[in-house]
Design a protein around this nucleic acid. Structure first.
Lengths: 197, 197
DNA sequence: TAGCCTACCAAGCACTTGCTTGGTACTAGT
DNA sequence: ACTAGTACCAAGCAAGTGCTTGGTAGGCTA
């Protein structure tokens, strides 16, 4: 059990993971520092030995996750795939993120709107703009190259795509019978070909 | 201004509408009774002349809305449309609900998971089950009749549909340039035919 | 053995929460 | 004039909130 697996997380990382699970489950505002401490088996004051504030916990969680996610997106953008190829690659990467960073995606989905009211979380709005630019650009490229149909409102298709991908975090459970790749493929089939016979 | 329009809402109804807007905007738990009272221009204690509790406000909002929505769904179910016809009719009715009962839909989307932890809101879970039965039944009927393709996981298509419809409340704003019918038609086109050229 | 570090506890402070209480002013019906 | 009902205010309580403070116990290093 101690061999070549993960390199033994620090107590700090353990606490962060516990907080992530609670934030994801009941929301950031609705999770108290006492909830987190109880789940970790310590008193609430002891958390402040490891973290500055409750805000800084969720900040670290979201920032770490988003940085990692965008590393993948940037690699896909820089690849030589067609527009449609990039779209499908990004959808697959996003479902992978739902699988591997379930709590962080859930927190982002449920609490981003609230958190962006603090200037500390301004980077969330910035990332959203970057995400929109990426998607809308790819959709327009796909239409221009003839890969995608041209009679739809690109802005609306973008919202449709964005929401359908990320909202899956509400029902997808890591470790279930469906792999992220399964879900991504079915979603892409519906999206690209429709459910008409 | 006082002629044949709406029949002059009671003070109680006004307060309920104010609360609905705040619940939708910042979440139920994250809205205080003082917030509601401030927005109405009264003191927080005065709210309790009209309502038993903060919970009973959101209860009344959700129950009224859902009862009305299901009246429409039941009429569609009882019609002589084909399975696909019923599906599209229900999608359109749902986008109409997002238009006419924006706050209530937003509250349901954002806070239902939290509210169902109270037995008072057990009816929400029951309605969700009913909704799932309706959708999955129609999808299976559509596959059986040959209207819809048979190579997709019905359960997954159901979740996809349910989420894509209701999550639109996050960006749709009543009174904008897009009518609910416009949005519903584009969504149905993507869903049925896909975005492939 | 001294000094420092990590990890935690016990107590509590300042503030916010939903809700209650006892009261006032006004209106409408009888 | 009497009563009942509506709509509100002023004050405050009990519970819970994030966070701070002063302290302890054990381990590591020089």
């Amino acid at each position: 059990m101690s061999a070549a697996s993960t390199p033994e997380p620090s107590r700090r990382d353990e606490l962060l993971a516990i907080a992530a699970g609670l934030f994801a489950e009941r929301g950031f505002k609705n999770t108290t520092v006492r909830d987190i401490a109880d789940a970790a088996g310590i008193l609430s004051g002891s958390l402040y030995h490891h973290f500055d504030s409750k805000e800084s916990m969720v900040d670290e969680l979201l920032d770490t996750f988003q940085t990692e996610l965008w590393k993948q997106y940037d690699a896909i953008t820089a690849s030589d795939l067609t527009a449609k190829g990039k779209l499908t690659a990004i959808v697959r990467a996003s479902f992978d993120a739902i699988d591997h960073h379930h709590s962080e995606v859930a927190i982002f989905q449920n609490d981003a709107a609230y958190l962006t009211t603090f200037e500390r979380f301004g980077y969330l709005a910035e990332r959203n703009r970057k995400f929109r630019t990426l998607w809308v650009g790819l959709l327009e490229d796909g239409v221009a190259s003839g890969e995608l149909r041209s009679d739809l409102d690109v802005e609306l298709v973008y919202r449709f795509l964005r929401d359908t991908v990320w909202v899956a975090v509400r029902w997808y459970r890591p470790g279930g019978s469906l792999t992220p790749a399964d879900v991504a493929d079915q979603y892409l089939t519906i999206l690209l070909e429709g459910i008409n016979q």
